[in-house]
């Protein structure tokens, strides 16, 4: 059997005002076909108003093996959250 066509990751914007979210993947020979296939596969029930397709091979991802080390720098910076701070009694609009 011949090689399958390239894999594309599909992102759909469900409606105006929302970001595109990943919904799945599909095979297609080129970007135009990937878009058409994505429309038929992932928006048969009006699930979207806009679609992105990205070649799966072009995605760079963080590795789950180094998950802890990679995200460690954020772990000890609780002061980035507003809940870290005590607000004095009676201070409005904070």
């Amino acid at each position: 059997m011949p090689e399958d066509s390239p894999l594309w990751e599909v992102f759909v914007r469900p409606r105006r005002g929302l970001a595109h979210s990943h919904v799945g993947s599909l095979h297609a020979p080129d970007a135009a076909m990937a878009l058409r296939n994505a429309r038929d596969l992932y928006t048969r029930r009006q699930e979207g108003v806009s679609i992105w397709v990205v070649p799966a091979a072009q995605i760079t991802a963080s590795s789950p093996d180094e998950k802890d080390a990679f995200f460690d720098p954020a772990a000890d910076k609780v002061y980035r959250h507003p809940t870290f701070y005590d607000v004095p009694e009676g201070a409005p609009h904070l």
């Binding site: 090689e3 399958d4 799945g24 993947s25 599909l26 038929d40 048969r44």
Partner: peptide, 21 residues
């Protein structure tokens, strides 16, 4: 829809390293 379901599932299987082909 059945064709679509098949394709969702092949795509999910491919995330484990099996190719659809």
């Amino acid at each position: 829809d059945e064709a679509g379901h098949g394709l969702y599932l092949y795509a999910a299987a491919e995330t484990l390293g099996a190719t659809r082909q």
